[in-house]
Amino acid sequence: MSFLELRKVSKRYGEGDAEVFAVRDVDLSVEAGELVAVMGPSGSGKSSLLSIAGTLEDPTSGEVFVGGALVSTMSRNEKARLRRRTIGFVFQDFNLLAGLTAAENVSLPLELDGAPAKKARVAAMTALESLDVAERASHYPDQLSGGERQRVAIARAIVGERRLLLADEPSGALDSLNGDAVMRLILSACKRGVSAVVVTHDARLGSWADRVVFIRDGQVVDQTVAPPSPESLLAGPPARR
């Protein structure tokens, strides 16, 4: 079984004439170590899909499996534990807590899960080091650049033993080079076995993914096939005269 699996998932709001589907009959599987991008226009259901995959919202129908476990049979506490231990979230606007340092922001989810402060601090520093931002550990979010804040947010999402990373427009308002850097970091987490889903409307970000799934009006309408080796590009067009 894939690490994340959505089977015939729908999310419906309202009743009768006011009934609206944010997500409709979506099947989505993400293997361990796979990076999947979900692309679609605003209002297409991308973020709803991510909330359901992250167990933040329950689907109206369908099943969600995370690490082989069926989410719908879990209690609220079990879902909260799953989120604390297994799932990391990265948001467009970083969502770092302003009153905590970078290291404290990263260690917070572990401490909330009952880890001793010292152990959580060590894990946070390891995550910050892996993202090359450890020297900024004692700085507060407003003392960090946009790129550094996003690195800290990614460190928080992968700290500890998290196996599923869910990112909503993770490059935010960063420039294109920093946006590339964010995707490079997510990809390197995937190479260590983390499964990741990135929702975006930006094809440049989506192109970092192993597979791109296109969503429209809450439904998956298409997906890319595995790209051939980039060497095929280097054959290049015939020389122009």
Binding site: M39, R204, W208, T224, S232
Partner: peptide, 16 residues
């Protein structure tokens, strides 16, 4: 759109 994104995936691999 899918064709363009698939091409972009190839170029991005090269960059990566």
């Amino acid at each position: 759109r899918r064709y363009l994104v698939e091409l972009m995936q190839q170029w991005t691999r090269l960059k990566e």
